[in-house]
Simulated assay, not measured.
Amino acid sequence: MDGRRRERLWRLLSERAPGGSGWAGVVVALVVAELGVEGAAITVRTASRVQDLAAASDDWTAALEELQYTVGEGPGVEAFETGGPVLVEDLRADHDRWPGLTDSALPSGVAAAFAFPMQAGAIRLGTLSLYRRQTGELSADELADALVLADLATTALLTDSSGAEPASAEAHEGYYDDVNVATGMLATELRVSLEDALLRLRAHAFSNHLPLTEVARAIVLRQLRLDAPPD
């Protein structure tokens, strides 16, 4: 990894840090400013596909990350599973790769996506995702910067998790807490596994064109009931 490139990006990151918004939030803001993309997000992921949104540059980006969680596919999911970058310069051309994602994401205006795994040693922690409204690949310099920033994002995530400054209280709130609670409720009520409960939650959200978090919240508040399918 280019030491001078890393030093430059770390300096820029440190200069932005006094804003007090949490290191993860500072990283995604820097990504948008430096890499010519419209959106960036840091998402924590696990092998069982549980995830949480650590930081997003805006609501548009957060919605794209949530959509990947809802349909269970996309560049972020693939980057985490393979351990390598997933670079998609034209989502429309890759429709067959992730049909559930592209059918729902393209109307929002996204045209290209780039996802990078975040790792600490052999442990995979999540992904740094970048989104553009125009098609086109990352330049050689942008790609090199993105790889460094994915590494810095890992440090940011671990720093925020430890409670070190400048992390804010909001950085520790679980974006998908309602999804986790709703999944547990469904598993108990329908007497199915947590995996099956999450699958039904996702299916309902996707088929009704609703955010997964909105469906989960309705279940937690007992405003929505998903009955078991007939045998």
Rank of each mutant, 00 (worst) to 15 (best):
residue 91 L to Y: 05
residue 98 W to S: 09
residue 33 A to S: 14
residue 88 V to N: 02
residue 64 L to H: 03
residue 115 A to S: 15
residue 51 Q to D: 11
residue 123 I to C: 11
residue 21 S to F: 08
residue 115 A to M: 03
residue 90 D to N: 14
residue 96 D to C: 03
residue 124 R to T: 14
residue 38 E to Y: 00
residue 87 L to Y: 06
residue 26 V to Q: 12
residue 102 T to F: 09
residue 96 D to P: 00
residue 74 G to C: 05
residue 49 R to M: 12
residue 57 S to H: 10
residue 25 G to M: 01
residue 63 A to T: 12
residue 48 S to W: 04
residue 107 P to M: 10
residue 25 G to F: 01
residue 35 L to W: 06
residue 46 T to W: 05
residue 27 V to I: 15
residue 48 S to A: 12
residue 45 R to W: 02
residue 15 E to D: 13
residue 20 G to K: 07
residue 39 G to M: 07
residue 18 P to T: 08
residue 89 E to T: 04
residue 23 W to L: 15
residue 114 F to D: 00
residue 85 P to E: 06
residue 94 D to R: 15
residue 43 T to L: 11
residue 24 A to C: 15
residue 56 A to V: 02
residue 33 A to L: 09
residue 46 T to F: 01
residue 76 G to H: 09
residue 107 P to V: 09
residue 123 I to L: 14
residue 95 H to I: 11
residue 83 G to L: 11
residue 36 G to C: 07
residue 42 I to V: 14
residue 122 A to Q: 13
residue 116 F to G: 01
residue 67 L to V: 08
residue 55 A to Q: 07
residue 105 A to T: 02
residue 33 A to P: 00
residue 24 A to I: 05
residue 60 W to C: 01
residue 80 F to R: 09
residue 52 D to W: 12
residue 74 G to P: 06
residue 98 W to R: 05
residue 59 D to Y: 01
residue 117 P to E: 12
residue 63 A to E: 14
residue 101 L to A: 07
residue 95 H to T: 12
residue 24 A to H: 04
residue 89 E to V: 04
residue 62 A to P: 00
residue 113 A to M: 10
residue 84 G to Q: 14
residue 47 A to C: 04
residue 56 A to G: 15
residue 100 G to W: 00
residue 76 G to C: 10
residue 28 V to W: 08
residue 52 D to N: 14
